[in-house]
Amino acid sequence: MNAIDVKDLSFGYTAEQVLSHIDLSIKEGEFVCISGGNGSGKSTLLKLILGELKPESGSVEIFEKEVSKISSFNDLGYVPQVNVVNKISFPVTCKELVSLAMYEDFGLIKIPKKKHYQKAIEQLNEMGLREYIETPFNELSGGLQQRTMICRAMINKPKILILDEPTAGVDLESKESLFELLSSLNKDKDVTIVLVTHELEAIKDKSLITKHYRLEEGSLELC
């Protein structure tokens, strides 16, 4: 079964098209990288896949279901581009941030319960963030913030993980450990990975990458 199916997708914020006639299918268990220059539409493509934006024409399916008809996205983890998350200027701890992803499980009163915090703590431990469980997110470095966001994205054990430039502004060491984390998720837990990045060179074991696309002038090309 295909994890993601994009068919003949076109989109523009204004009259000018950002994406035109994009086709992309990603099978379960694949590790797909998408690169492209600034403003080429990488984030836009991800937002269309996630159903945040509506396509002008064409379709997006996740596990063979039209994205606009999906009622629960728990199969899908998303890590937004860091400048999106950076704007958190108020204190919210990593534990709080991660537990929010279990919203659908909160019950009638949408406050994280003890078991959700417990699960968040376990996940943070597992991802090497033990020290930062009670730390306000806005006090973390960029790399640790990314790690926390990946932790949040993974909390429901999604089958697909979509990441938008998770290594922007992260030092080389953290970059490598981030990619190691992604490869182990892909290899050991069979998570399908869609990674937007400029920094393929930091991925040591390139054999993991099943496909590499470049987005240029609105169209997607296999490299």
Binding site: V85, L100, Y103, R152
Partner: peptide
């Protein structure tokens, strides 16, 4: 925190 993430979380 993020409207899009919130929507994806349900």
């Amino acid at each position: 925190i993020d409207g899009n993430l919130a929507r994806l979380s349900g």
